[in-house]
């Protein structure tokens, strides 16, 4: 029997599970959506039904002010989507609630990883390696130059800059969902228990993480603090606020950014970053290729990111692979 896996169909605006008429991470409103995680480019609003983990649904509710059509799926529990398709949400280790989706139909198993990483993250359970026939993987950092250093080293850099400049603050640009909370949790794990100040856009997401049991320590809003009080402290804001007027109220901020892109010097310079912190919630090159080897699928399909290099790697390792042209996924600030 030819294995063409034609029951699953990649389209530019999402992946269609044809027998059950569902879409995975669609970038336009559909009747039934299966969502891997809460980042806005994967979890859009306006679907009839949304299948996702309770954490992801809570994030979406926070963002879209509605949970109409929400269908909670617990990690590891298999549900039937109809049309002979079963689906299981498995931990992806990307952000709170992030999941891979395992789809089973007619004896074939397909996994959509969504975004993932293999490093430990105190805010979410680790990626689970699961055998399958087709692995549909992300490739955001799919170039061999990307090797994320241990997060402990990057946190140590941050804390050193803070200690060396007691009259200033370190302003860290970090994605408001996931990166910010992981960074704060790691800073706490490194023994730093001082107040951390937040940009207003960070607050609700941090509270939500805490509701799900992630302890972030003492957090305060910049808008409620005096300039002097902020000196010697960490301030976390979305990357877009780093060089904006908002930062004028801070005491001589040292501009830092927590992102996998900070591995490349010119990327950091373009953002006018003085203290680049190579911290990513995506798999780096070694994690991506190791995952393909460990899952060992019959075919690898590569979604958003630097597909060419991953394709080349698959070719060099005699693995069947193809690149899917999905639109609408953004990776600039990850």
């Amino acid at each position: 029997m030819a294995r063409d896996f034609s029951w699953i169909r990649p389209e530019p605006w999402g992946i269609h599970v044809t027998p059950a008429d569902c879409w995975i991470d669609p970038s336009r409103p559909v009747d039934r959506a299966l969502v891997t995680h809460g980042h806005a480019d994967h979890a859009r609003g306006g679907h009839g039904e949304t299948f996702a983990t309770p954490e992801t649904l809570a994030i979406m509710k926070l963002r879209y002010q509605t949970d109409e059509g929400a269908q909670a799926t617990v990690y590891g529990e298999t549900i039937s989507l109809g049309g002979g398709v079963d689906a299981t949400w498995l931990p992806a280790g990307h952000v709170l609630g992030s999941a891979q989706i395992l789809l089973e139909h007619a004896g074939e198993r397909i996994i959509v990883t969504g975004d993932y990483k293999r490093r430990p993250d105190p805010t979410c359970p680790p990626f689970q390696v699961t055998p399958c026939d087709v692995l549909i993987t992300e490739a955001t950092f799919g170039l061999p130059v990307f090797k994320h250093p241990p997060i402990e080293d990057e946190v140590a850099k941050l804390l050193k800059a803070l200690a060396d400049n007691p009259d200033r603050c370190v302003l860290v640009g970090a994605y408001a969902l996931g990166k910010a909370q992981r960074l704060i949790a790691e800073v706490r794990r490194a023994g730093h228990h001082e107040t951390i100040y937040l940009h207003g856009a960070m607050e609700r997401m941090c509270r939500l993480y805490e509701e799900f049991g992630v302890d972030l320590g003492d957090l305060k809003l910049v808008s409620e603090a005096k300039k002097d009080a902020i000196a010697g402290h960490i301030v976390v804001c979305p990357p877009s606020a780093l060089n904006d007027r908002w930062s004028r109220r801070l005491p001589e901020p040292i501009t830092a950014m927590a992102s996998g892109w900070m591995r490349v010097r010119q990327r950091a310079r373009q953002r006018m970053v003085e203290l680049p912190l190579v911290i990513s919630d995506h798999a780096d090159w070694d994690e991506l290729t190791r995952t393909v080897e460990e899952v060992n699928p019959f075919e690898t399909w590569i979604t958003h990111g630097r597909e060419e290099a991953m394709l080349r790697w698959c070719q060099l390792h005699q693995r069947r692979a193809k690149a899917l042209a999905l639109v609408g996924y953004e990776d600039e600030d990850d």
């Binding site: 170039l143 061999p144 490349v264 010097r265 010119q266 630097r306 080349r312």
Partner: peptide, 8 residues
């Protein structure tokens, strides 16, 4: 591919 991305 890497050289193109990094630029140096």
């Amino acid at each position: 591919l890497s050289r193109d991305f990094v630029g140096d």
